[in-house]
Write a protein that binds this DNA or RNA. Structure first.
Lengths: 218, 218
DNA sequence: CTTTTACAGCGACACCTGTCGCGTTAAGAT
DNA sequence: ATCTTAACGCGACAGGTGTCGCTGTAAAAG
């Protein structure tokens, strides 16, 4: 039981050392997982996050309700597993040739992802308030993205746009946070100008010496 | 019915022009509202947002379930009305003597409000994903706060810390957004240094010419 | 090819959500 | 003081949520 819970929270399929040789991830179990995860996406786009119930997922996937509850615990757990399954992609940060361009492109991606009807990202954020599994998945996802975005800052340093040391995480948060604030917290409509403005602001702050850099006199 | 819905979304007690002379906000109706709203707070701190059900509120207040559903529609509507009832306070922005200090003080207030156990603010944000009433109340609340914070920027301009024109809203968002990003979206633990860092970053960006100001050479 | 047992199927359950129609009460207007 | 009707009380309802104990099946170990 505790094992089942752990598996659901992890959401994945690999790395289970606790029982010496117990888990059984092959054949039917894997097939069930595929069926269930395949049902989540379509249901999300058809009925939105509020229409996404464990019952509906179970019915569409042909898997029993109790099985879904046992393995995924709640809707948040389902979304988390979908994210993990799809998040193992090879996304890389944009490379436009200058720091501000990279950050703006990043912000435009964020705005697109959050603005689309029945967005997986938005659903996960909503679920993260009620589901520990979704909250964890979200945290992992963002941590992963920040990790991959160090390139953006390193390239800027290499070009001489910034002088080290740069607190990468702080810069990235400053650049993207206004978007989340507008789209997620204020539930505002997407604003085409916002990605550029937020990127510009973050670059100005960075060049003025925020994030641990020394100001680079012109 | 449409009237009931409107009333619930507005959440308040005044200004109903549609029916010439119909509404009936006195006596019993007002008493019911008081009883219900008085039950929300304690239930929120005792059981948290997830434990806050319409049924529980109805039971504690001694008002019938159906009445609560009719007037407030859902938990989000209840929280929205609590906010409206309490939000008519005379909050004013902090005045510490310098822009960065004001913004830091503002951020510390935000961090405190969002960090407390069973925070009303956090509950409202969570509810805003499932309840139009909560989303509206949240938007109105923030709009009101931004309105009251223009003083901070005006004082900074008067002191010569900034040169007009200043896009006030953009500056305030830049200063506070990283906090929301950390506390609300990443569900992170409160970080005592973050309010100051975010304030400092926003001030640096402002003085570097973001938000429509011209850079003020030293 | 057997045995073990992890995992799925199944139905029951207690509870919360949200809506409905009907009868009752009491604001507010005459 | 009386009438009208907005708003509440009441119980029923059709869902969804999450858990439980049991039985059945098929991975994985021998």
């Amino acid at each position: 039981m505790a094992v089942t819970k752990k598996e659901a929270e992890g959401g994945g399929e690999a790395a289970e050392p606790p029982p010496p040789a117990a888990r059984r991830p092959g054949g039917r179990t894997a097939r069930v997982r595929d069926q269930v995860l395949a049902a989540v996406g379509p249901l999300l786009v058809e009925h939105g996050y509020d229409g996404l119930s464990v019952d509906a997922v179970a019915a569409r996937s042909g898997v029993h309700r109790a099985t879904v509850y046992r393995r995924w615990r709640d809707v948040g757990g389902l979304l988390a597993d979908v994210l993990d399954a799809a998040g193992a992609d090879r996304w890389t940060a944009p490379d436009t040739g200058c720091l501000e361009g990279d950050l703006r492109a990043l912000n435009e991606e964020v705005q697109d992802a959050l603005s689309e009807e029945s967005s997986l990202a938005m659903a996960l954020i909503a679920a993260s308030f009620r589901s520990a599994g979704a909250a964890d998945a979200l945290r992992r996802f963002w941590e992963d993205r920040y990790e991959r975005c160090v390139d953006v800052v390193e390239r800027a340093v290499a070009r001489g746009e910034l002088t080290p040391p740069v607190e990468t995480r702080g810069l990235l948060v400053a650049a993207t946070a206004p978007l989340y604030h507008h789209l997620v917290l204020l539930h505002g409509a997407p604003d085409p100008a916002l990605p550029g403005e937020a990127a510009r602001t973050a670059v100005l702050a960075a060049r003025a010496g925020a994030f641990g850099t020394r100001s680079r006199p012109e």
